[in-house]
Amino acid sequence: MAYSEKVMEHYENPRNVGTLDKDASNVGTGMVGAPACGDVMRLQIQVSDDGVIENAVFKTYGCGSAIASSSLVTEWMKGKTLEEAKQIKNMDIAEELALPPVKVHCSVLAEDAISAAVEDYLKKKQAD
């Protein structure tokens, strides 16, 4: 399978690889996928008091397209409000990275990771 240049570029130089303190109240963590399916994405966001994503990091176990998809969304999410971040759709990711049809599920996973991270943050905030 031939990967697009953009996938290769993100894969070679992944952005925002890292870990945030998942217990901190201003951090939301989304972990989606399963090892049995061959991909697990962990996306973490750090949100300011006025609801803007200040930082986004990821770690991903999966194919090159999964790594590139998660790397790309961390870039896109930074500086966005939670509402804006939730507008990122899998087709935007797939298009930007020129994913072939068999890899579109990677972009779906990335979209799921965004939702999960935002949900986690909102849940924490409610509990406060």
């Binding site: 990967y3 290769m8 894969y11 061959g38 991909d39 176990y61 999966g62 194919c63 090159g64 999964a66 790594i67």
Partner: peptide, 9 residues
């Protein structure tokens, strides 16, 4: 803990 396809890449 490393996925095979990404390793091949």
């Amino acid at each position: 803990f490393v996925e095979g396809e990404s390793l091949i890449m």
